[in-house]
Simulated scan of single mutants.
Amino acid sequence: MLFNKPPSPARSRRDVGHEVRPRPIGPRPNGPDTPLMEPAALSRALRHAAWRDPRAERKKFTEVYSAVRTLERTAAYVDQALERLSEVAEALRIGQTTEHDLMRGLQAARIEELLDSLERLSKMAANGGLNLLNGESESLYLDFGHEAFRYVLPPFDLRRGPKGLNIPQMKDGFDNSSEIQAISQAVALAQVRVGQFAARLSHDAGMLVRMAKTYEADISVEGDIGPSQERAD
């Protein structure tokens, strides 16, 4: 479902010398809420990920593990964002259920601070020239295998603005019930979206670790073949 099928042998013979366009691995490029890659598709991809040049295997092994580190770094900031959103939801509940004006004012200020911290988290998630949490960076992608499969992870905008989580500002404190309702609904939706992206990061990191182990195994096999064995063959 999430892969274009590899070309048939007949088609491959016709396309000799023609550059194969990369095929995406994982969810289709319409956001993080799409289904994750199917196990059968991953197995198919790993079968096509075989390299016979050990130098190419080492290079790809390094690229894949670098991507895993990027996903893990991103996931750490996503987890912090989920904590912030959970604290916002709790502050909204407290502010709406208390009648003490000072407490309501403190909770309103706390909510705004927590939501503004999402902007800081999105900036801190930068890893080299790539930032998967500000919505403006390029996608993370890896090409691998002789059939030119491509893993793609589009950036997710963690910021509270309209292009990101779209959580409105609290202008009237807890005096405007419709405003509070809109903020509460936006926070609840943001928790779902960020949680789904967190699940995607976890899934994809595990998938890429499996890929890296495949390359690592191939490197080990190639390294065990000495010159005497090669001559014997």
Rank of each mutant, 00 (worst) to 15 (best):
F3S: 15
K5A: 10
K5R: 10
S8M: 09
S12R: 11
R13T: 14
D15P: 08
V16E: 07
V16D: 02
G17E: 07
E19P: 08
V20K: 09
R21H: 15
R21W: 07
R23D: 06
P27M: 02
R28G: 09
M37G: 03
M37V: 04
L42C: 00
L42F: 10
A45E: 04
L46Q: 07
L46T: 05
R47P: 06
A49I: 12
W51C: 12
R55I: 12
A56C: 05
A56T: 15
E57A: 13
K59W: 03
S66D: 14
A67I: 06
R69N: 13
R73I: 10
T74C: 02
Y77N: 03
Q80M: 01
A81N: 02
A81S: 09
L82C: 01
L82I: 02
L82W: 00
E83I: 05
L85I: 09
V88C: 02
A89Q: 12
R93S: 07
H100T: 06
R104L: 09
G105S: 11
G105R: 12
G105T: 11
L106T: 12
Q107R: 11
A109T: 09
R110Q: 14
R110G: 11
E112I: 14
E113D: 10
L115H: 00
L115F: 00
L118C: 10
E119F: 13
R120N: 09
L121C: 01
S122G: 07
K123H: 07
A125F: 05
N127S: 13
N127R: 08
G129R: 08
N134D: 15
N134H: 06
N134R: 04
G135E: 08
G135M: 10
E138T: 15
S139P: 15
S139Y: 01
Y141C: 15
F144W: 14
G145C: 02
F149L: 11
R150V: 03
R150G: 03
V152C: 02
V152A: 00
L153T: 07
P154A: 13
F156C: 03
L158P: 00
R160Y: 05
G161Q: 09
G161H: 04
N166K: 07
P168S: 11
M170Y: 02
G173L: 02
G173Y: 01
F174L: 13
S177I: 12
S178A: 13
S178Q: 08
E179C: 03
A186V: 11
A190T: 04
V192Q: 08
R193A: 00
Q196R: 13
A199P: 06
S202N: 11
M207R: 05
L208T: 14
L208K: 03
Y215C: 09
D218L: 01
V221G: 12
E222F: 00
E222L: 14
I225D: 07
S228D: 14
Q229R: 13
E230N: 05
E230W: 07
